[in-house]
């Protein structure tokens, strides 16, 4: 009798996590549907102006999407190569002593709150950029990209390292015995063999960059615009959501519901990427088990 109750209670705990997902979907979809009563879906998805808080309201999400993408691309340019090379270095070249220093450094890097990265971007990186390119404004996409890039290096590095370590040592020995240099072993055998795991780490890293909020809110600005110029201010989807919730937008208005619509878009994008990443992960786990 007691056993059954305990089993049931434990099941409820596990099922709660599913309830959270259901809750997220219900809240986002519900409010977004109401939002689409006032704003046509087509305008939301294809409009190039985003001015819900102005007198003349436009609800095109593309400027926010473009802002998120610009920062995510910038962050990827930094974090993907650095993360991958770090993973190669840690698993293939570094001695135990070097590993003993670098691994904790990466863990600390991963544990620093994003608001701290925002501070670092605003008070250190941006002034540095301004020294090099004086026309850069206080808020710019580049500064945000750099700190977001640094922020996701640990994600990319640790997942890639897992994938690289899963490649059997016998493959490395095989390649070396054919006269491959250690670089050739890494680039021609180990990395191709770990490819799906590495791709998974890349996708997850980019997804995290898109979902990142505080550093971009602080450093990238609040100017929704479609631009590819990293020296300009932009507004990301996440930064917009923060902006609305900081303001005094009355609940129940169209403006207020934009946070759910944008939140839903953000949720869908990151969910897709996480699922894709999971697919690639399953593939490499299958191969080496």
């Amino acid at each position: 009798m007691g056993e059954a109750v305990i089993g049931g209670a434990l099941f409820m705990c596990a099922a709660l996590s599913t309830l959270v997902t259901v809750g997220i979907v219900v809240v986002l979809v519900g409010e977004t549907l109401v939002f689409f009563r006032d704003v046509p879906v087509v305008e939301f998805l294809t409009g190039t102006e985003w001015t819900p808080l102005f007198a003349e309201k436009n609800f095109g999400v593309l400027p926010l999407l473009s802002g998120s993408l610009l920062v995510a691309i910038g962050a990827s340019v930094i974090s993907l190569p650095i993360g991958l090379l770090t993973a190669v270095c840690l698993s293939e070249f570094a001695s135990e002593r070097v590993r003993g220093v670098l691994k904790p450094a990466l863990e600390i890097l991963a544990g620093i709150p994003t608001v701290v990265y925002g501070y670092f971007a605003l008070t250190f990186i941006t002034p540095l950029i301004q020294v090099l390119v004086p026309s850069t404004g206080t808020f710019n996409a580049l500064s945000a990209s750099i700190v977001v890039g640094i922020m996701i290096v640990p994600t990319v590095a640790s997942l890639s390292e897992d994938a690289i370590r899963a490649v059997p040592l016998s493959l490395r020995a095989g390649a070396l015995s054919l006269g491959a240099t250690r670089m050739e072993v890494s680039t021609r055998v180990v990395l191709p063999a770990a490819l799906s795991g590495i791709i998974a780490s890349f996708i997850l890293g980019i997804s995290r960059a898109i979902g990142e909020t505080m550093a971009v809110t602080i450093a990238a600005g609040a100017l929704p615009q479609i631009t590819a110029n990293p020296f300009e201010a932009v507004q990301t989807m996440t930064a917009y959501i923060v902006q609305v919730s900081l303001g005094d937008t009355p609940t129940g208005t169209v403006e207020y519901r934009t946070i759910f619509a944008v939140g839903f878009a953000l949720f869908v994008i990151t969910l897709m990427m996480n699922l894709a990443s999971q697919l690639f992960l399953d593939r490499y786990r299958e191969r080496y088990q």
Binding site: T18, V20, G211, T213, T238, I241, F260
Partner: peptide, 23 residues
């Protein structure tokens, strides 16, 4: 349940904020 937990770990924190606000 297991797949869902893995996916929840990747949901941006601000989405949890939206959920917290609504619920």
């Amino acid at each position: 349940i297991q797949v869902n937990i893995a996916n929840l770990a990747g949901v941006p924190s601000i989405v949890y904020g939206i959920l917290g606000l609504a619920v």
